[in-house]
Design a protein around this nucleic acid. Structure first.
Lengths: 246, 246
DNA sequence: CGAAGAATTGACGAACGTCAAATCGAGTGG
DNA sequence: CCACTCGATTTGACGTTCGTCAATTCTTCG
């Protein structure tokens, strides 16, 4: 279930091991994957409206997927962390619909879609893995939606923090410290909250001794308390972990 | 682009014509598709936690995908209209994560996933179509999310009504009348709003002469006005229509 | 060291949820 | 066919939550 994201998530699609995909598929994926070097914070990987060419995996760093609201206001649609894939919506539209921006120094790898499709032509197990990957993205999307709709600012942010904690500890034990790659404003935007509200909820969490937070550095003090606040996300009979996001 | 949903959306995957899929693929899809008879409102197609077997398409009627919030409160995740597919999240989890309930007299067709996968083994174009389908679902999910997050009740409901109008006129010209398959409470829940708020916004729309509404029957009086209210959904350089939803 | 952006804090008002009660409407059994 | 009944919808009153505007402090990076 764990992976070595830093190596290349594009070759370990959705945490698939070589045993799952087969050596030949791994080999050919490696051949078509484009390993991009690290880029600075603020770099755009692609922009909304550009023709779709490849899906991307995060190797190091973090990505935000954003849209521009009517008034040109930025709205965060999702965050993408190491081991996760993004740009998948382009498959349907032949164009990217979101803009992808690096939140910090970030390295991604690209899988040109046409070539990926050709490789999949020879590898049923890769095909199955791709379907699982996309299904997992739909799932995370729905989880996020359900966690936000109709809940208080407390519940949304508690959910987001716990979610980020899980996703940022891929392949290792869950940490009780983490460094957020995004600003309060970006975190709030992804939860449909104003920056000030986000900041106030952080203060409240501190007062209640649920977390310590100095700037972007977070320390979890009371996980049980946070979980009580957050939306439960009842996946009945679910023992498995989370998946990559769009 | 149009389809004959009532015949069988399972054979016209995501509005794919026979020319797109090829006659043989169509034939084999027809062979594995299970055409279920119409069921009464309130019937559960599947429940969260049940083992995943098939993805479903809506032929006639409407489906709501729901989850149960911590306190056992029902939360609407999505609506599914004729021609659209649901149950796709099961691919990842091997279980259904939502419960699917018929909102009115509804007929669906099932595509057993293992068999579908086998058919796709022989048909690259079907594989491509499946990827497009799932990508489209991710896209609609994100659209919905972006339209709800951080916007007023007015904007959310205006968006939802316009969205339902488009989706309920598949294959035909857009109607300015439609009959909503869901209650105010369900509509509100899917937008993260209380039933009372939903009702009040409807009253406001009536006073402003944006719509007529008696019970579930809606008539659009001022589309331009509604669009001004609703969230723009800027898909830059986008001339295409919408897609099926999860 | 300085500057620009990020985070915090306060005050205020608008938007929305909650509780409660009244009305409407569709389906049902007699 | 009609009265009845249960749920859906509406309406009102009220309190809470959250967004907005504005000012201040803190960080980070050049």
């Amino acid at each position: 279930m764990q992976d070595q994201s830093e190596a290349s998530p594009c070759v370990a699609l959705d945490a698939a091991t070589p045993e799952v995909l087969g050596d030949d598929a791994i080999e050919r994926l490696r051949a078509i994957a484009i390993q991009h070097g690290a880029v600075a914070a603020g770099t755009r990987i692609f922009r909304a409206g550009e023709p779709f060419r490849a899906i991307y995996g995060v190797r190091i760093g973090a990505i935000k997927a954003i849209r521009y609201d009517g008034a040109g206001e930025e709205q965060v649609v999702a965050f993408h962390l190491p081991g996760e894939f993004f740009g998948l919506t382009g498959i349907h539209s032949d164009r990217y619909v979101n803009t992808a921006v690096a939140l910090e120094r970030t390295a991604v790898c690209g899988l040109p879609y046409q070539r990926l499709f050709h490789v999949a032509n020879d590898h049923p197990r890769l095909r199955r893995q791709l379907m699982r990957l996309m299904s997992g993205v739909i799932l995370t999307e729905q989880d996020q939606y359900a966690a936000m709709a109709g809940h208080t600012a407390d519940a949304r942010l508690a959910f987001l923090l716990l979610d980020l904690r899980e996703r940022m500890s891929r392949g290792g034990a869950l940490q009780d410290r983490l460094r957020l790659p995004m600003t309060r404003a970006e975190l709030g935007s992804s939860a449909g909250l104003a920056p000030e509200t986000t900041s106030r909820v952080f203060q409240q969490f501190r007062r209640r001794e649920l977390i310590e937070a100095s700037g972007r550095n977070i320390r979890f003090l009371d996980l049980a308390g946070l979980r009580r606040l957050a939306v439960p996300l009842t996946h009945p009979g679910d023992g498995s972990g989370r998946t990559t996001a769009a």
